[in-house]
Amino acid sequence: MNQLVNVGLTNSVGDITQYLTFQSANDTFAIGILDVKEIIEIEGITRVPMMPEFLCGIINLRGKVVPVIDLSKRLGRLSTVISKKSCIVLVEISHEDEQQTIGMLVDEVNEILEIDDEHTQPPPDFGADLRVDFIRAMGRVGEHFMILLDINYVLSVADISAISQLNFRTAEANDEVL
């Protein structure tokens, strides 16, 4: 077809794709529903030292250790303020032939919407204060626009672990200066 970014192709039923929409840092975001494993309440996130700030910590998911990322912080905005409506969206992404479960801390989960190809368009070339690779496409529902996230980049294990390594080196360097 044309250069429309193929969003959530695997989620399509015909030309229509289902998305989970949620709020974070005053914006509405959406991700393909097939990537979503579970939505859970916030209960005891254990902090992990020496990791980037956007990594809130880890949680105990029925005996499994799952990392949780503050979406807002990860997108370069302010830390999420935890409220009653805040929750964790568990998504599954692939990393090096392995499936990894990662949690996303969001302000509020909205609803499941259907957005078809006609209502999506490629991300703007400029103006968005987000990393371009985080955005798959823009979606329109009625009057609202929402950002369709590419979680493989947002929650990229490789990315995050690299950042943490960098952090550590920086800390070391700081030590030296002292």
């Binding site: 254990t46 992990v48 990791m51 105990n60 499994k64 250790v65 990392p67 392995e98 672990s161 943490s164």
Partner: peptide, 19 residues
């Protein structure tokens, strides 16, 4: 011992988590 996962592989000083 529960492994932390690849995300934490560069973490020094911590080798895992336990419940």
């Amino acid at each position: 011992i529960k492994p932390l996962g690849k995300m934490f592989q560069h973490l020094k000083g911590l080798s895992g988590a336990t419940i």
